[in-house]
């Protein structure tokens, strides 16, 4: 079969100890038999490892931080598009998604396709809206609230039992065992990610995640559940295994159907010690462990690319249970010349 040539820009090249999803997404797309891809990396930091993975990323361009606003981002994307003729952009960071969603029509107008949820879908699943989300869609969620000050925090914690989870607006979460610890985490997280900080009931149990893909019409195109086997201090899975749990797939199907979710999504759940399933977070994009799904038989990045290009995708019906991933770190040797070219010209 002739492979379709496409140029795909991907963010999230920070393949570090708390990795972005870019590199696993690229690996999935590279393994596609449908596409012959040219991969353009879009990076925020000069030391994002994916920039230097030349067998995976053909060329990388620096782009402005989300804090600089969507207009600066669009301007830079137009410059890159003029050189590379981008067909598709796959954004992989929560913090940048708002800008990309807002730019969807403008990008489409210049011939760049994306496949993203609507702003309403994106906002509705926000950590701070989780309680309302649980109520609306009939899903168990931990009790939680958003706080903007230490006095807010003090008031909330009077009615909660320790430990409690203190979560950043976009990333990072800590279990606090005392008010002092909670304040410490509150200050740290608000300084890093801004307000609100989310305070959530701590649920004891086993952490399970589901990566899924929705077609925007309510259909579940792909879904693979994973149990974390090894968790780093930052709460990231360093090892995981695919599991057979129909209730997880049922929940993923229900959420995709009810919300008509468009694009990749990760559901973070806890199976409590009394076997109840709690939804603790919804990430509005493909997670960094997505390559496990590829290895288990569901090439979700490829399916996402096909949907983005308007191609028909048949929903996956199976995956291998008991397939594991074990993450590793690897030191690349990089010539200073490459680094200096990137820092001075903004591309490599």
């Amino acid at each position: 079969m002739d492979q379709r040539k496409v140029t795909v820009a991907v963010t999230g090249l920070n393949n570090i100890d708390s990795p972005g999803p870019g590199i696993p997404v690229i690996r999935g797309i590279r393994e596609s038999k449908v596409f012959n891809v040219r991969i353009i990396g879009l990076a925020y930091e000069h030391l994002e490892p994916g920039i230097y993975m030349r067998d995976l990323v053909d060329k990388t361009y620096m782009i402005p931080y989300p804090s600089e606003g969507k207009d600066a981002l669009f301007k830079r994307l137009l410059e890159i598009h003029a050189k590379e003729k981008l067909d598709v952009i796959i954004p992989n960071f929560d913090a940048e998604l708002f800008s990309f969603i807002k730019l969807e029509k403008k990008l489409d107008g210049v011939g760049i396709k994306t496949y993203l949820p609507s702003i309403e879908q994106f906002e509705e699943r926000n950590k701070s809206n989780l309680s309302a989300y649980g109520e609306k869609y009939g899903v168990h969620v931990p009790a939680g609230t958003e706080v903007y000050s230490t006095s807010d925090l003090n008031n909330i914690l009077r009615s909660m039992n320790y430990p409690v989870m203190i979560k950043g607006k976009y990333y990072d979460a800590y279990a606090a065992n005392s008010f002092e610890q909670a304040v410490n985490y509150f200050i740290r997280l608000s300084a890093k990610w801004g307000f609100p900080v989310i305070v959530q009931e701590f649920i004891r149990g086993t952490e399970v995640n589901v990566v899924a893909l929705g077609d925007g019409k309510g259909n579940l195109i792909a879904a693979v559940p994973m149990r974390k086997q090894y968790i780093t201090e930052k709460g990231k899975a360093w090892g995981g295994i695919t599991i057979e749990d129909p209730s997880l797939l049922e929940l993923a199907g229900k959420i995709i159907f009810q919300t008509k979710w468009r694009g990749g999504i990760e559901l973070e759940l806890i199976r409590s010690t009394d076997h109840r399933l709690y939804l603790i977070e919804i990430n509005p994009r493909i997670p960094a462990w997505v390559y496990l799904a590829v290895g288990a038989g569901q090439n979700i990045p490829e399916a996402l690319l096909m949907l983005t290009l308007g191609m028909e995708v048949n929903p996956f019906t199976r995956y291998d249970v008991g397939k594991m991933f074990v993450r590793y770190s690897y030191d690349m040797i990089v010539d200073l010349e490459l680094f200096s070219r990137l820092t001075t010209t903004g591309e490599l």
Binding site: V208, R227, I241, I243, E244, V321, G322
Partner: peptide
């Protein structure tokens, strides 16, 4: 029914990943 038991005594519960 879905519990896997291998020749060398490795038991895997696919529902939980244990």
């Amino acid at each position: 029914g879905n519990i896997a038991l291998s020749e060398n005594g490795f038991v895997f519960n696919p529902a939980t990943g244990d």
